[in-house]
Every structure is written in C-alpha cells, then in structure tokens.
Design a protein around this nucleic acid. Sequence first.
DNA 1: ACCTGAACACCGTTCAAGT
DNA 2: ACCTGAACACCGTTCAAGT
Lengths: 196, 196
Amino acid sequence: MKTRPYHHGDLRAALLALAEDTLRDRGPGELSLRELARAAGVSPAAPSRHFRTKQALLDALALEGFDRLTAAMTEALARTGDSFGERLTALTRTYVTFAIGNPALLELMFSRKHEPTAPAELIEATQRLMAMATGLIEDGQRRGEVREGPVIRLAVPLAAVLQGMTDLALSGGFTEEQVEEGLVEMIDFIRRGYRP
Amino acid sequence: MKTRPYHHGDLRAALLALAEDTLRDRGPGELSLRELARAAGVSPAAPSRHFRTKQALLDALALEGFDRLTAAMTEALARTGDSFGERLTALTRTYVTFAIGNPALLELMFSRKHEPTAPAELIEATQRLMAMATGLIEDGQRRGEVREGPVIRLAVPLAAVLQGMTDLALSGGFTEEQVEEGLVEMIDFIRRGYRP
DNA sequence: ACCTGAACACCGTTCAAGT
DNA sequence: ACCTGAACACCGTTCAAGT
C-alpha cells in the first residue's frame, strides 16, 4: 500500500471536490472545513494555504459553478437554431437542467448576491450569465421576434422567471413530467410577454 | 435601578426580536444563539426552554414573517378595486415592498424550501401565500380577464416572476425609480402572459 | 512552498441543580 | 415552569515550527 505523501498533490482541487460532495449530499449547514481536511487526510490548518477562509472556499466553488453553467449554455446555443424561440428554449432548458442537477451549488452561486463583500470575480461571473440573457433578447429584437424597448428592462422578467421557475422545480412535489409541463408553460409565458 | 428578575418575562419574544435585528443588521452568518442569550441577559442554556434548537428559533421567525406578509397582502387587497389588473398590482407591490423592507427575513422564510425536514407549519404558511396567487388568477378567469387553463400551471410563472423580481430588486445597483420601472414592466409582462 | 501541532476564542446542546 | 452553571464535543483561524 502507498504511504500518503507529505505534499498532498492537489489539495486545493481535492477540497473543492469534497466540499461539493458534502454540499450536495448533506447541505451547506453540514459543511465544515475541519471535516474536509480530515477527509482529505490533512491537518486542520492545511486548507488555509489554499483558502484563507471558509468563505473563500465557498466563493471558489461558486465560481466553478458559474463556469460550468455558462459553458453548458454556450454549448446549447451552438447546437440549436437561430430563431428566438429555439434559442430561448435551449437556454431555459439548460438552466433548469443545471439547477435540478446541482441545486445546492446553484443556491451557493447566488447566495452572496445581496452581500456587498462579494468578490469581484463572483460579480463578474453573474454578469456574464446576465449578458447571455440580454444577448438573446437583442438578437430577438433584431430579427423582429421580440418587441422593442430597453433590453435591460426586458431582461428583468426573463431572469426573474428563470430564477423563480427553478426554485419551484426544486421546491419538491413535482414529477419530471410536471416540470416539463411547467417548462413549456414558462417558455410560452415568456414568448407572450415579448411578442411585438 | 431595577434588578433583572429571575424570570425574564417574555424571553421567547425577546429572542425572536433580537434575532430579527441581527439578521437585518449583520446577516444570518453572524447570528449566534449564545450571543442572543447574552443580549437578552440570560444564560447560554436559557433559550433551549423556548426553542429546542437554533433551527427551531429560525423557523419560528420565518413563520412570523409569513404571517406579516400574508396580513399585508390581505389588507392591500381590501383597499383596491376588483379588476384583475388592480388586484395583481396590489399584490405585486405589497410583495416587493415587503421584500425590500425585510430582505434577510424573506430569505430566511424561503431558505428551507428545498429541505424535507422543514416543519409542517412552515410548509402550510408557504401554501397560504401560494393560495393568494391562485385565488387571484381564478378570479381573473371568472371575470374573463385571464385566459383559461389549469390554475396551477398559470400560477407557476406568477410566483416565479415575483420571487425573481424581488431578487433582482435586492441584488443592488438599482435606484428606487428603476425598481418602480421594473415593477411596471413586470406587471405588464404578467398581464401579457395571462391575456385571453 | 506546503503542511503539522498546538493553541485560542468561540460555537450549539445537554443536564444536573437551583428557585 | 423557568433559568443557572458547568461540561462536552465541536468549530474557524492563527502561528510557530517542521520538511
């Protein structure tokens, strides 16, 4: 059997992966830095080399979540047609799928949105996500499929519906079919709201 | 000067009030049961008589929030006209006003929505809130101002937009005027989505 | 550069004991 | 019934010291 090396190898990545597991399986309240350290086989002080505080680790994990989500959305857009309806459907489905697959991570991603102490990287990641929504709307306007008006005002309800719909999908008590129905309803609702 | 009595008087209410203050002023991460006890002038073990765990105290506070919000909504409905537009506007404004005035409390109120361990009282309170939304829609349908369809499906986007809009209003960077504009935009958006 | 070991100041919760 | 005092098992974070 191998002896554990003095240097872990990649403690940073290991801690992030372990943190995501506990977040997913046992919730944010159960996440302890000391326990992560134990699981990684290092001393309680070891994590502080890679994350100055527990919050810093959570922020790094949230950032990873944003990266994965925006990547998935970009891929989804590349695989679909050019019409507003198709693009809206692709983005919405990708977002809701991510939310259902990573509920705790998504909650973590947006958990600092009301706090002024949030790091710049996290704010920028949120803005990148928002930019995908405004881009979709602007494109729709150019094609004459979305009514005119300031993009930022039009984007508010879209972001709102996305955020809210995933909340509802996660709040339990819904079958996969009901979520699918709700998705169709929601996309229809958005298109009505945007119709020229 | 008065000497502090052995029996506090109403420690339960005092703890709830103190908890709401720290939640509002310093955020949920700073809320400590021991500190609340110190602020109330009792021993660290005293709160356990009234709240078996810290979570139980938070749940009780959340319940208080639901009571206040539904009361405000009922009042708002009583003060407005009968048309769907008026009632929708009244409910939406009340909800957003409450959210802006009590952001941390609102977050607490919905923080347990994904957890299966949430107490029945909290789930019922959420359902009472949802019932106000479905009631509004059903009424609109009866008046011919809202298109036909299963109420539960129509209610999803409304709840979603409400939840999401307040999130955005709170996420900072908006003036009071912009929030007002966003509210008008959102109400218009919902009415378009519901139009027969 | 990366980690250990030990310490510090704090938690939430429990439980016998007091009034 | 309501609270105290003391204890238990845990935290997050810091810091000298080791390799």
